[in-house]
Amino acid sequence: MANWVLKGLRTGIRTTGYPSRPERAAGVSPGRPHGASLNSIEQADTLVERCPTRAIERQEGGVAVDHRRCVYCLRCQRDGMETVAPWDASYEWATEGLDEAASAKKLQRAFGRSLHIRFLDAGACSACVSEARQLNNPYYNMHRLGLFTTPTPRNADVLLVSGPVSDAMRLPLRKAYEAMPAPKRVVAIGACAIFGGVFGSSFAASGGASQIIPVDVIVPGCPPPPLAILHGLLLVVGRKPPAQPVSRPSDQVMEPA
């Protein structure tokens, strides 16, 4: 047993400084596509055409990117593309739900700084599950921020939903939401939970959590990295402002704040 204690001590503290300080380690986030100012319409059209989920849209002076619809196929980046969308290295992506007015209103201070979180997998590809699980690893250690998981939605403040909501998970999702005491918030993580992702709306999936229950905060990404999920949770407790999900050609490319 002493070995383990020693091993733990020798490893030292690895925890990120976020949210007090920005995390600059390489690979914590894949970054996100950003709106680009382009001169030629053809270039813009190529980008728009390349995007399988219509996240890229033509706008005056170039293309705008709706990050919420991005599934990280990286096709606007790679594969012999001459024109590539600029890419920012941020991870603070969480924003209000698709019904922005309602979520913004609901996000008024309802909680103190601590949250109890119930995670629910509604048909996710398990990359989201894996990223959410990383929140408990020593790098992110969400406990230090007063964020805890709870086994039952009865004690939960936040329902963390991933996946496009498969048919069989519709009932459990609704039951879990109803079992939560008020005030309660729903955080949808990943493209699937936001709009159905690559699975869309079909006979087997509902096309996003908001089709079943009201969603207050969304964390775009496929999958969103742990820091982005953390940002979403901090947004719920009002410790961080929401991000701008749509980047226009004129917007500045952001660095991690």
Partner: peptide, 12 residues
């Protein structure tokens, strides 16, 4: 005070 059924893990 609201009363609900015991949590059943999302089972039917």
């Amino acid at each position: 005070l609201s009363r609900g059924p015991a949590w059943d893990g999302g089972l039917r």
